[in-house]
Design a protein around this nucleic acid. Structure first.
Lengths: 225, 225
DNA sequence: TGCGCGCAACCTGTCAACAGCCTGTTGACA
DNA sequence: TGTCAACAGGCTGTTGACAGGTTGCGCGCA
């Protein structure tokens, strides 16, 4: 067998692997999850697998149907996706406002801000070169860096959880160069507000980046479907 | 045995019961959860119990220590509690803003608003009579009604989840009559902003009700504690 | 008397097996 | 030919048992 004894407990291992399978689309939304088949596929027993599924249920990645009917990969309705965007926008605004407050209070290290601005510049280059993959990866790093700089664990974990959930509907709305530039211009504006220590504007821009930016781009990509 | 065969699956039943035990304080924060003992106490086997614990882990009510060390009831650090207040304030502001938007757009039924105002009036009476228990219960109903009227499922469930988690640290900061009146005055102000269809003010008041109100009252009760 | 080692009990992590229910299919009857 | 009912298979819900690790206690030694 290929199951080299990893140090992690099996439920957590199964959780991570299932998460990967679901978010990558290998397990399509709506598909039912056969416990014995899945357990065999992951090389473990049904016990730990069920524990992992319970965890994913709380994360909104799988849903438990009526009793006796097992679990399925969650299918994200458009309305639910819209609500997810609302929540992410709210958190993004909160984080940006917090950064601006820290800047104004002088508790935000200048090096941190400079590093964030450098990331935006790098994304600008990626967008100019039309390198969507590089831009996408750097975009993730940038948002992680924002969360870390804000220093609010709960907001960061919550945002991450909501983001993961939204990945149930895999969209690729940033593939076009003009959209990358548009999104990155919003990044720059957000950081400018932070640099000026303007929490209200930073918050508004942060919210708009997700709601007016990401959500709108998602809606447009729906229209193109 | 007293375990009459409930129609719910065992893991969900165990979840609800454990939640009750934890939030009521019968299982104190930090206490380790012996699986066999708990299973016997709940009248079931370790399998479903572990599933329930995994769910509660995702809810932040229990934490899994290092491998081989099992689970414990989560102990909420003051900093974590403060962050929870931040998140709840954010959501409360969002919900209030949404209500004001609905009011301005005319999609909020007048009867709903009137009912909310009636609840505030009833709480005013409770506060005047010094009936803390009645006030507390009506306060919960009021906030539920707010969430329902806002019509945003995700915000409502998220708020509920955060609220439950915050109950890990059981505070009783609303026991004094002047605090009840103070809190209820905030309710009235929030509804006034909604009635005027002023999302920005409603949002600010909603945030302040949790952050400037609940959080501050919590901090004060800490000082007394 | 204090410290360290070893043993024993316990507890978690994991698995395989049993019972009941749901589902899909097949066959008979109107 | 359409519909209903009975049956078979599979799947979930649940349980009890086994293996490995951890903890706490007691004993021996310095």
């Amino acid at each position: 067998m290929d199951t080299l004894p990893t140090q992690l407990p099996l439920p957590e291992r199964a959780r991570a692997e299932l998460e990967r399978l679901i978010l990558s689309g290998e397990l399509a939304p709506g598909s039912r999850l056969n416990e014995v088949a899945l357990a065999a596929r992951l090389g473990l027993s049904r016990g730990p697998l069920r524990e992992a599924l319970r965890g994913l249920e709380r994360d909104g990645l799988v849903t438990a149907g009526p009793a006796g009917q097992g679990m399925s990969v969650r299918r994200l309705e458009p309305e639910e996706m819209a609500e997810l965007y609302d929540m992410r926008a709210l958190l993004q605004g909160f984080i940006l406002a917090r950064l601006a407050e820290r800047r104004a209070a002088g508790t935000l290290a200048p090096a941190v801000l400079e590093r964030l601005q450098a990331q935006v510049a790098a994304m600008e280059a990626d967008a100019g070169a039309g390198d969507a993959a590089a831009y996408y990866a750097r975009n993730l790093d940038f948002h992680d860096a924002l969360h870390e700089a804000a220093g609010h664990r709960r907001a960061a974990t919550l945002y991450g959880s909501l983001l993961k959930e939204s990945h149930l509907a895999r969209q690729r709305s940033l593939s076009r160069p003009e959209r990358m530039r548009e999104s990155n211009a919003e990044h720059a504006a957000m950081l400018a507000a932070v640099a000026e220590g303007d929490p209200a504007r930073a918050r508004a821009l942060g919210e708009a980046h997700v709601a007016g930016g990401g959500k709108r781009r998602w809606l447009e990509s729906l229209g193109q479907g």
